[in-house]
C-alpha cells in the first residue's frame, strides 16, 4: 500500500464520482435462484437430447424452409 499515498489526488476525485457501495445495497433486489434454475434446466435439456437428434431436427427444419410444399407431405405422415 506504499504507493497509494501518492495517488490521493486521483482517489479524492474518484470518490466524488463514485459513492461507495453501502452494505444495504449488497443484497440482490430479487431472488436469483429461479434464474439459476432456468439455466440448469436448459442445460439438462441439452444434455438429455443427443446431438444427432438436434442435427436431425435442424435438417428437417431446413428442408421444410426450402421446400414449403413438403410441409403437407410431412403432416400427412404424422
Amino acid at each position: 500500500m506504499t504507493k497509494l499515498e501518492n495517488h490521493d489526488d486521483v482517489r479524492a476525485i474518484l470518490k466524488k464520482g463514485f459513492p461507495r457501495i453501502r452494505a444495504a445495497d449488497e443484497e440482490p433486489r430479487r431472488d436469483l435462484w429461479p434464474a439459476m434454475l432456468r439455466k440448469l434446466d436448459a442445460h439438462a435439456l441439452r444434455q438429455r437430447v443427443p446431438w444427432y437428434d438436434w442435427a436431425l431436427l435442424g435438417a428437417l427444419a431446413g428442408t421444410l424452409a426450402f421446400f414449403p410444399t413438403s410441409i403437407l407431405l410431412f403432416m400427412y405422415h404424422l
Binding site: I21, E27, P28, L32
Partner: peptide
C-alpha cells in the same frame, strides 16, 4: 450475496450485477 456484492463493486450496476452473479 457475497458474489453479488463483489460484482456490484466492480460494475456498479445492480441489474448487470444480478445477471453476472447467475
Amino acid at each position: 450475496r457475497e458474489v453479488y456484492g463483489w460484482i456490484l463493486r466492480i460494475v456498479r450496476d445492480p441489474a448487470a450485477a444480478e445477471d453476472l452473479t447467475v
